[in-house]
């Protein structure tokens, strides 16, 4: 474990930042650390965290997924339409939409890995296409409200714990196993560090790349459905905020935006930091506009800390060669 910490200083830093931020927020807003408030903070962070899971995989592998907003939004709206407020259809609608999310990820992954489309272009395109399709599908009219079961999954509790937080915990465990304990993780880090070296070492680079986008499609679709339960209904544009926050959570969590490093455990802290910030600013009487300014600044600062350590490492490597 200590080796893990030594190699992942940036992740430790992210958790330290989270704790400091919590204490600062509590100073300005005394009720912040209350159980009920912490509970709602974790719930909100869970949505960011779930979307950012797939994003973490994609970014570690050296790509980026800009299609998450409308994969999320599409899953939310199609679920609401197909269920029409009823619980029973969820039995097939949820698996169907998870598969749908995975399929979009597959399209992204194949475009990037097999056809060499740059990830930014590929995922931006699928994002816009999905947006168009949903507009055509709904004609802009509101959708039926969310089924009660999905509302339970996002705002309900089991033994005092929010269900969505438990889902997040389970996903965190699964992601950690995949990254730290499975061959997939090794392949992924190698791919993101150098695709050429990975290829020359026999890593299944195409398959690994595709898998990251599939996971991202899955988690975005899942988050879309859970978020519909949280808001009580699906609406156009509900995914927009998650493009920035999913990438920001990964960056704050210590991953290099260029790939090859980072961990989902860091992203979890990143999601918490972003969510706590949204709680801190109202306490300081700052507007939502100010929130965006702070968001941007936080990203800039954390990423530059990250790249500085990266540059330092590069210097050491050059210096040692003799």
């Amino acid at each position: 474990m200590s080796a893990f910490l030594a190699r992942n200083r940036l992740i430790v830093l992210a958790y330290a930042g989270m704790v400091v931020l919590l204490l600062v927020t509590a100073m300005f807003s005394p009720g912040f650390l209350s159980v009920s408030n912490m509970r709602s903070t974790v719930v909100l962070a869970a949505f960011v965290g779930i979307v950012a899971l797939g994003q973490t995989f994609v970014i570690i592998g050296g790509g980026i997924d800009l299609s998450v907003p409308w994969v999320l939004n599409s899953a939310a709206i199609v679920m609401a339409l197909l269920c029409g407020g009823q619980d029973l259809p969820l039995i097939w609608v949820m698996p169907l939409l998870l598969a749908g999310g995975a399929f979009i990820g597959l399209v992204n992954g194949v475009g990037v890995a097999q056809f060499g489309v740059p990830p930014i272009i590929m995922t931006l395109a699928t994002n816009v296409i999905l947006q168009g399709l949903i507009l055509v599908l709904t004609g802009g009219s509101p959708t039926p409200s969310a089924p009660a079961l999905i509302q339970f999954l996002s705002v309900g509790r089991i033994g005092g714990f929010p269900v969505v937080a438990l889902i997040w915990l389970a996903l965190t465990l699964a992601a950690t196993l995949l990254l730290s304990k499975a061959a997939f993780g090794r392949h992924l880090y190698a791919l993101g560090t150098s695709a050429t070296v990975a290829e020359f070492s026999g890593v299944p680079t195409a398959r690994t790349t595709i898998l990251t986008y599939v996971v991202s499609g899955l988690t975005a679709a899942l988050a879309g459905m859970l978020l519909t339960g949280y808001s009580g209904q699906a609406y156009l544009g509900m995914g927009d905020a998650y493009l920035f926050t999913s990438i920001a959570a990964v960056a704050i969590g210590g991953a290099s935006i260029l790939g090859g490093s980072g961990h989902y455990l860091g992203t979890v802290a990143g999601a918490m930091v972003l969510t706590i910030l949204t709680g801190l600013l109202p306490a300081l009487n700052l507007s939502s506009g100010a929130l965006l300014v702070v968001y941007g600044a936080v990203i800039l600062i954390t990423v530059s800390i990250g790249s500085e350590t990266f540059a330092g490492l590069g210097g050491r490597i050059r210096g040692r060669r003799a």
Binding site: Y189, A190, T193, S194, V197, A198, F200, G260, L313, I317
Partner: peptide
């Protein structure tokens, strides 16, 4: 360095 090794691993 370009094909053989992951320098940062």
């Amino acid at each position: 360095r370009g094909q053989g090794l992951l320098l940062t691993k």
